[in-house]
């Protein structure tokens, strides 16, 4: 495994800068009962700051419920922070969500494609949604479909595609507008080994293309394989952040994570 994931020196630009992001959710009565709490609100993200740079893959690592997905949803403008702000390619997620959406590609298992349509049609549709010109869109479709082996299935309805192919189509459509930043929530969650490999190879390809990627995961090996920089989130707070070599200081990522976890929570796992 290649652990030398230091950022490309030539890509030092800070494409994502989040400052003191905070997000609170109101708990439903049912949720309060399940959690055995009287608290009406739960802080999902608590003053989180991070920086990610051009040409890097940044991994948000943390246990379930730590606030990873909420952070990525805020960065992708699907939800608004209660406090703090983040700038993606210089655009504020609070004040310029439309501009942010033009420069990001967001991928998550929650976002689905309509099974009734073909990959070719959906690519054109989402291209139009991003305002891409037809000729440029056709060229990009040819390039991406052939690169990811979708061309043979371009006219097959999405519902009839294999899971792996569906995932490839989702990925390709998320970057139809050639975004500078790709936000990916739990990229390999629930995928079989073959599809998971398609996804990780895809991310490395995007990185090779000079894209900046921020992903969330709780899989140590995935971070070690893909990420240049990692941020560890526990209970909505960023408790450690840096390149893998800076952070681990000779330890494995897994050992380092549990050490930080113990220090933060004061409890063993």
């Amino acid at each position: 495994m290649d652990n030398d994931n230091t950022p490309f020196p030539a890509f030092g630009d800070e494409v994502i800068r989040a400052t003191e992001l905070r997000k609170t959710f109101e708990l439903s009565r049912r949720q309060r009962r399940l959690d055995r709490t009287n608290d009406v609100y739960r802080v999902a993200v608590d003053g989180l700051s991070l920086s990610a740079y051009r040409g890097e893959i940044y991994g948000l690592l943390g246990p379930n419920g730590a606030g990873k997905t909420t952070t990525l949803r805020m960065l992708s403008t699907l939800i608004k922070p209660d406090a703090g702000d983040a700038f993606i390619c210089g655009h504020s997620i609070r004040k310029q969500p439309d501009k942010v959406r033009d420069v990001i590609g967001f991928m998550t298992s929650e976002l689905k494609l309509e099974g009734f349509f073909t990959p070719s049609y959906l690519f054109d549709f989402f291209g139009a949604m991003h305002g891409i010109e037809k000729s440029a869109l056709a060229a990009r479709k040819q390039e991406l479909f052939s690169r990811f082996g979708i061309d043979k299935f371009a006219e097959v309805k999405v519902k009839d595609l294999s899971t792996g192919m569906k995932q490839k189509v989702s990925l390709v459509i998320a970057i139809v507008h050639d975004p500078d930043v790709i936000i990916f929530d739990e990229p390999t969650n629930g995928l079989d080994v073959l599809t998971a490999k398609v996804v990780t190879d895809f991310l490395l390809e995007l990185k090779a293309m000079g894209k900046s990627i921020i992903l969330s995961t709780h899989i140590f090996s995935l971070v070690e394989k893909l990420c240049d920089r990692v941020g560890i989130i526990i209970d909505g707070r960023m408790v450690a952040d840096g390149t893998i070599s800076e952070l681990c200081d000779g330890m494995t990522l897994e050992d380092k994570f549990f050490e930080i976890y113990r220090e933060t929570k004061g409890e063993n796992v």
Binding site: T77, L111, M129
Partner: peptide, 17 residues
Amino acid sequence: GEKERGTLATILVTSAR
């Protein structure tokens, strides 16, 4: 139906008004 299936959210991530 689109909201339930998650396909509406996919459109919301684009810059369409």
